[in-house]
């Protein structure tokens, strides 16, 4: 069953077409990676799907609701971990989590319970009372993703979730993301191709606002006659092999 059905989705900023006629279906529980060089249209696509910006043309239906007609219904069911850590700096870890849970409709008691559970799940138990600004970059990322998951979203957008993390922190986050596979539909954007290979069910490659290739990692390497995703990506993104 599809979680996201995108039909001819287009976003134009005056003369610039950031996303051009994008059509795509993503299944429930799938982890779909969106790849592309800077300016390819990945973030604009995510912004349209998460109802942050309106499409110029076309539509996307998320869990039965159109981004154009019922954005508020979609917002109840999705969550996002933006590129920046996007946490409330002077609030503690527990306060950040409880705030997010409350915003998504949980009462104070449920929010506290959810915060305890997700803090434990993401290894944030020991820093629950620490202010977010006092956490390391890796811990802030974990908090950011925990905040995105505390509302138990059916669709989760992860925009470069491991940007700037060291190898160990990245591996820990991968494990957390892997644990969500099959339960939550995840759209991931990243520049780390190893991450894509480890985590993704399918991969879409965007070039100049267009989706130029789609498939599993194996399908993309086979299609390009390459031995790894990086070489396949370079070829499909129009670079020099």
């Amino acid at each position: 069953m599809s979680a996201i059905t995108i039909t001819n989705l287009t976003k134009k900023y005056r003369e610039v077409t950031a996303v051009n006629n994008l059509s795509l279906t993503i299944e429930q529980g799938e982890l779909f990676s969106l790849l592309g060089v800077n300016g390819a249209g990945k973030t604009t696509t995510i912004k349209m799907l998460s109802c942050l910006i309106k499409p110029t043309d076309g539509d996307a239906v998320l869990l039965g609701n159109s981004v154009k007609e019922h954005p508020q219904a979609i917002k109840e069911k999705i969550n996002i971990s933006p590129q920046e850590t996007a946490v409330a700096a002077n609030l503690s870890v527990a306060e950040n989590l409880e705030l997010t849970a409350g915003i998504y409709g949980q009462d104070s008691k449920s929010a506290k319970k959810s915060a305890d559970e997700i803090a434990s799940q993401f290894g944030l138990d020991g820093v629950r009372k620490k202010k977010a600004k006092q956490l390391s970059g890796g811990m802030q990322r974990r908090l950011s993703i925990a905040m995105a998951l505390i509302s138990t979203p059916q669709i989760l957008f992860l925009d470069e979730p491991t940007l700037g993390l060291d190898v160990l922190a990245r591996r820990e986050l991968w494990a957390s993301i892997k644990a969500l596979k099959g339960k939550v539909t995840i759209i991931l954007t990243t520049h780390y191709l190893e991450e894509v290979e480890v985590l993704s069910d399918r991969v879409g490659i965007m070039v100049n606002g267009k989706l130029t290739a789609i498939g599993t990692v194996a399908e993309l390497t086979e299609q390009t006659g390459t031995s790894n995703l990086e070489d396949a990506f370079v070829l499909l993104a129009g670079g020099v092999a």
């Binding site: 998460s50 109802c51 942050l52 508020q72 917002k75 109840e76 999705i78 969550n79 996002i80 971990s81 933006p82 590129q83 920046e84 850590t85 996007a86 946490v87 409330a88 700096a89 997010t100 915003i103 998504y104 409709g105 905040m147 995105a148 509302s151 957008f157």
Partner: peptide
């Protein structure tokens, strides 16, 4: 301004607020 530049507002804009 800080909520905007840290993307905290972006997170909230995708919420039901």
């Amino acid at each position: 301004a800080k909520d905007r530049t840290s993307s905290f507002l972006m997170r909230l804009f995708t919420s039901p607020m």
